[in-house]
Structure formats: structure tokens, C-alpha cells
């Protein structure tokens, strides 16, 4: 099964706040394995525009720190699974996600 995960980044860490993300690491997964990854700059987008962008990219999972309510609702209504309050480096967090062991509130360093 092919899915897309988006990891919000701030200064090479998982962004503590979704609405302050500088970049988004977009990872295409096929049966749980990363097959393609790219980074997009999103610093210029406000939080609503970021929601629209992520929904347009048809992401399935969003991994980030805190997410304010209006954005959470918009994303969830679009079918995006949110794994929030995650702390750590994107590499360590992605590894945990690929292992199927990432949940909201996970801290990996």
C-alpha cells in the first residue's frame, strides 16, 4: 500500500509547532518502506495555506509538534492522520514511524 507521510521541520528538528514549520519532509512509503523523499520550503505559508498545500499533496500522515485546533480539524476532515506532540530529529522520528512505533507524544533523540 502506498502512502505519504509529511514531517514538519524547524531548524532540523521536528517543528514544535505546526504553524511555525520552516520545511516539510515529504516521504512516499510503499508497504511501510520509504521509496522517495523530498523537502519543501513552507516558511512563507500561513497555517491555512499550509493545510491546503498538504491536503493538495494528498498526504496520509502528518508528524509534528503541537497543532492548533482549526488546522487539526481541517486536516482530519480531509482524512489526514495526525501524530502530534512528537519531539526529536526527523531521521530518528522517521525511523520510528517506519518501524510502526510512532504515536502522539513520542520523544526520540
Amino acid at each position: 500500500m502506498k502512502t505519504i507521510a509529511a514531517l514538519c521541520l524547524w531548524e532540523e528538528r521536528i517543528a514544535p509547532r505546526y504553524d511555525r514549520s520552516q520545511k516539510v519532509l515529504v516521504v512516499h512509503l510503499d508497504h511501510g518502506k520509504a521509496v522517495e523523499a523530498s523537502t519543501i520550503a513552507v516558511e512563507h505559508l500561513d497555517r491555512e495555506e499550509l493545510c491546503k498545500t498538504l491536503i493538495a499533496m494528498k498526504i496520509n500522515t502528518l508528524i509534528c509538534g503541537g497543532v492548533v485546533d482549526p488546522c487539526r480539524r481541517t486536516l482530519e476532515q480531509a482524512g489526514v492522520k495526525i501524530i502530534d506532540n512528537v519531539i526529536g530529529s526527523p531521521q530518528a522520528v522517521l525511523s520510528r514511524h517506519l518501524a510502526g512505533a510512532l504515536s502522539s507524544g513520542t520523544v526520540v533523540d
Binding site: R13, R17, R20, G65, G66
Partner: peptide, 12 residues
Amino acid sequence: RCYEIFRADMCF
């Protein structure tokens, strides 16, 4: 890191 817990607007 304090900004990962405190998450204040001014941190960013």
C-alpha cells in the same frame, strides 16, 4: 530543548 516544550511564539 526549552522551545520544544515551551512552544511560545517568540521562540520561533
